[in-house]
Design a protein around this nucleic acid. Sequence first.
DNA 1: TAAAAATGGTACTATAATTGTACTGTATTA
DNA 2: TAATACAGTACAATTATAGTACCATTTTTA
Lengths: 151, 151
Amino acid sequence: MIRIGKLTDYGILIMTYLAREPEGLHAAQEIALAVGIALPTANKLLKMLARGGLLESQRGTKGGYALSRPPSTITMVDIIGALEGPVGLTDCGTAQQPGNCQRERSCSVKANWQRISQAVNDALAGVTLAEMTVPSQPIRIYERQPAQPVT
Amino acid sequence: MIRIGKLTDYGILIMTYLAREPEGLHAAQEIALAVGIALPTANKLLKMLARGGLLESQRGTKGGYALSRPPSTITMVDIIGALEGPVGLTDCGTAQQPGNCQRERSCSVKANWQRISQAVNDALAGVTLAEMTVPSQPIRIYERQPAQPVT
DNA sequence: TAAAAATGGTACTATAATTGTACTGTATTA
DNA sequence: TAATACAGTACAATTATAGTACCATTTTTA
């Protein structure tokens, strides 16, 4: 099974909460309570999301966090990227980075993996935070090509 | 970063090797040597792939493994599924399984995650083993829809 | 018929990555 | 100036993965 980490999962819940509550700033404590995770964990994630440029933060007594952009312009790739680094499936490297793969010589599979990573990347880039806040709206990311002959 | 395990990576190398050598049976020892992994590891993977129905096996002195179907009918989803279980991104469940998620009540994100998992699943199902054996052939899985208005 | 070769299944250990927490520093407000 | 809240780093505990070993079963061959 391909999976994303629990922390990333929490992170998306956090982002979803903030998207639903666009008014003003929200302290880490409030967010942790609302999402249902421990405060230290929420703190950690909020810091990472802020460093990734997805959240604006303000310190001080009335401080807190808020989305830095409209939810419709934030995609799953942005969030996952901020919490787990660039999206890729193997150490062969993502579409951007070269990758640190031994074996090189015998590995003619590399280029193909990079393309697959790209496809997954595109799939995740097609889903916005705004769409995630709406419970059951049909999401249309891709349309399959006519028909693949299965030889 | 979303990733698949090393073992799955090895498994795909094994499958690729077998796809390139369609003649007769191949013993685990031969495969381990060719792919460049330890014999016990190769054994483990070959067993799993056989149990998943992707490989035919024969015991005995002249035994070994071979693909059970033509490479063009085996996709990345088949291989990953055999080695890591169904493809999914969170514990929310795959398109097939319900998933074991606490929180249920506050988690309206669930349905969306399942759709995203489906999209990734489709992306991986679009790449066949036959395509992986060809070093640098352009893979066309999906075509993006005209344009998504980025509000 | 027996021995050798190879897969099938299960269980176990060691390693590595993830997760979760704590501590110290800095900024802002009352 | 005291209290509140974010920023950054580092660390401990847990968990999952990776890798190995063992024994059973099947098939071929001498």
